[in-house]
Computed example of a mutant assay.
Amino acid sequence: MPMVVRSRDFTARAWEALPIALIDGVGIRLHWTDAPYVWHVNDGQEVFAVLDGRVRMHWRADGAERTALLEAGDVFHAPEGTEHVAHPQGAARILVIERAGSV
Rank of each mutant, 00 (worst) to 15 (best):
T82V: 12
M1K: 07
G73L: 13
W39Y: 10
R6Y: 05
Q45D: 14
H40E: 09
W39G: 08
P2G: 00
A35M: 13
W15S: 02
H58P: 03
A14N: 03
V50I: 04
D34Q: 14
D9V: 03
R13L: 01
V50R: 01
D52T: 06
R66D: 11
S102W: 07
R93T: 00
E71H: 12
V47P: 04
G25T: 05
V55S: 05
I97A: 10
I94L: 09
G27W: 03
P19W: 05
A35T: 09
T33N: 11
R66N: 12
G81C: 07
V41Y: 05
W15T: 00
Y37R: 09
A68L: 15
G101A: 09
L30K: 06
I97V: 15
H84L: 04
D9I: 02
V50G: 04
R6M: 02
A49T: 13
H84Y: 11
D62V: 06
L30D: 08
V38F: 13
I94F: 05
R56K: 13
T11L: 01
F76G: 10
S7I: 01
T11G: 02
R6N: 12
E80A: 14
G63Q: 02
I20R: 02
A21E: 07
F76T: 14
P36E: 11
L30P: 06
I23P: 05
V38G: 11
H84M: 08
V5Q: 06
G25P: 04
V85M: 15
E16T: 00
A100I: 07
T67R: 13
A72S: 15
S102K: 14
T67Q: 15
G81A: 15
R66Q: 14
H58E: 09
